[in-house]
């Protein structure tokens, strides 16, 4: 595959860096984030960041795996370059959510979940998926 950085994408990547407070170019692809990720994300955190480094914004933004991040912060804690993949992933999710593109359907949500889950799970879920 031939990868050409898209100029429009570069602008959006800069905006993502500004919003998240992260410096994507600092990543040197060591893969510690991916090695420690308990969410079995595919594309993995380091791959998502590589998409961004290559100027492929849409590939990162539309990756289904971003919705499996549980913000355990293992990646951020282990990054030797002080990048927070979890923050970048949340930045990508926020773009969907702010466009009114939720990832949980309230109407079909399991009543069982609402009845039995601790409030913190419901509130966090609302923040991360809706």
């Amino acid at each position: 595959m031939l990868i050409n950085p898209v100029e429009k994408d570069q602008k959006r990547i800069s905006e993502l860096e500004l919003a998240t407070g992260e410096s994507i170019s600092d990543c040197y692809q060591c893969g510690k984030c991916t090695a420690g990720c308990p969410a079995s994300m595919d594309p993995a955190p380091s791959v998502l960041i590589q998409f961004l480094k290559l100027g492929q914004f849409e590939l990162a933004k539309n990756a289904e795996s971003i919705w499996s991040c549980m913000a355990c912060l293992t990646c951020s804690e282990r990054c030797p370059k002080n990048v927070s993949p979890a923050a970048i992933i949340e930045g990508l999710k926020n773009l969907h959510l702010r466009d009114m593109d939720p990832r949980v359907n309230l109407e079909t949500m399991s009543r069982d979940f609402l009845a039995h889950s601790p409030q913190m799970a419901i509130i966090s879920g609302f923040r991360k998926f809706i």
């Binding site: 969410a39 949980v104 889950s117």
Partner: peptide, 19 residues
């Protein structure tokens, strides 16, 4: 110190079960 799956229980409970 491994993650239990946290709020993912809202969307992917089977993954939380596995973790």
């Amino acid at each position: 110190v491994d993650c239990c799956g946290s709020y993912l229980v809202m969307r992917e409970p089977e993954k939380v079960s596995k973790l």
